[in-house]
Design a protein around this nucleic acid. Sequence first.
DNA 1: GGCTTATATGCGGCTATGCGCATAAGCAGA
DNA 2: TCTGCTTATGCGCATAGCCGCATATAAGCC
Lengths: 99, 99
Amino acid sequence: MISILSALAEPTRLAALRILADGGEHCVCELMDRLGASQSRMSRHMSVLKANGLVVDRRDAQWVRYTINPDLPDHLRPLIDAVLAAADAETPLLKGKAA
Amino acid sequence: MISILSALAEPTRLAALRILADGGEHCVCELMDRLGASQSRMSRHMSVLKANGLVVDRRDAQWVRYTINPDLPDHLRPLIDAVLAAADAETPLLKGKAA
DNA sequence: GGCTTATATGCGGCTATGCGCATAAGCAGA
DNA sequence: TCTGCTTATGCGCATAGCCGCATATAAGCC
């Protein structure tokens, strides 16, 4: 398993989290399309975020909808917020390309 | 090179940053001792932090003193603070052992 | 210069991580 | 049940990152 910080330190995962940060539910297929990631890649990245408690998923017919974990531990919330805020800034947090 | 978030996602580096967070200057030898890291390991970890702009170093006779980068970009400051704060909490941010 | 202490780095090995490909598994509708 | 759509996962490969070891570099002291 990957640590929380490592989970955030991957461009596609961070980009996915930024999409989820709108508070809505998003299926893997939508994230794939918006991030230009292959299906297996996207699915695996979401499973990493999930394994680290950052997101939760919900079966909805054929789809799996992901959301930011609403029960995120209190001490993690400001961290996530800070990471997302910093990701908005111009200085790259990550080496890869932004999405 | 490693991204900023990846730089933080390593137990020894995060622990070093927590030591530097007291605002003081700390040489590699002190960090080695306090974190139980070998010399080359500690030196390399500090170079990663430095390469990512998180710390700065200064020659002082035989020693190299490291400090948190005082000119940290504004949008990174809250991120670092949040990471350090979260690292103080009980839930492990990283998989490795704390120091 | 020679010795000691402190730090950086080249090298090789090991492991973790990310990826694509193929396939399995889950669900719905005919 | 058969088909199609969506998601998960086993497998193998390529690479990145971490480590120890040895050595180089740098500074101070005699």
